[in-house]
Simulated scan of single mutants.
Amino acid sequence: MRGLLVVNPAATTTSARTRDVLTHALASEMKLEAVTTQYRGHARDLGRQAADSEDIDLVVALGGDGTVNEVVNGLLHRGPDPDRLPRLAVVPGGSTNVFARALGLPNDAVEATGVILDALRENRERTVGLGLAAGTPGTEDEAVPSRWFTFTAGLGFDAGVVGRVEQQREQGRRSTHALYLRQVVRQFLDEPHRRHGTITLDRPGEEPVTGLVLSIICNTAPWTFLGNRPVYASPRASFDTGLDVMALSRMSTASVARYATQLLTSSPERGPHGKHVVSLHDLAGFTLHSKVRLPLQMDGDHLGLRTSVTFTGVHRALRVIV
Rank of each mutant, 00 (worst) to 15 (best):
S215Q: 01
G242A: 11
A178Y: 11
D190H: 15
W223K: 06
E207I: 01
R258M: 11
V277H: 00
V278N: 01
G242C: 03
R169E: 09
Q187R: 14
F151Y: 15
R169L: 07
V185G: 02
G163Q: 12
A221H: 13
H273F: 03
A237E: 04
H281N: 08
I216L: 13
T253C: 06
K275Y: 03
I217D: 02
E206K: 05
G156T: 09
R182M: 14
M251N: 07
C218N: 15
L155M: 15
E206D: 11
L280D: 04
R229L: 05
S234G: 10
L248A: 14
T261D: 00
A237M: 05
D158Q: 11
N219G: 15
R270H: 04
T220C: 12
R164T: 05
S255E: 11
P268E: 00
P204Q: 15
Q167V: 12
T253L: 15
R194M: 12
G205S: 04
D244M: 02
R236T: 15
F157W: 06
T265Y: 00
P204N: 07
S234F: 11
A233R: 02
P204Y: 09
R182Y: 08
T261M: 04
R186V: 10
N219W: 07
H276D: 13
H276G: 03
Q167E: 15
L212Q: 01
R174H: 10
R195G: 07
P272Y: 00
M246P: 03
T253G: 15
T253V: 14
P208A: 06
V161H: 12
S249I: 01
V245N: 10
A237G: 09
T200S: 05
R270S: 01
L280K: 03
V209T: 13
L201S: 04
A233G: 09
F151P: 04
F239C: 06
E207G: 08
S238T: 11
W223T: 15
E207T: 12
D202H: 11
S266G: 06
H281G: 08
L243Y: 12
S267H: 00
T150K: 09
Q183P: 13
V161F: 11
L226E: 08
T261S: 05
A284K: 14
G156D: 04
M251H: 05
G271E: 02
G160E: 12
G211I: 08
A257N: 08
G197Q: 01
V278I: 13
R174V: 08
R186E: 06
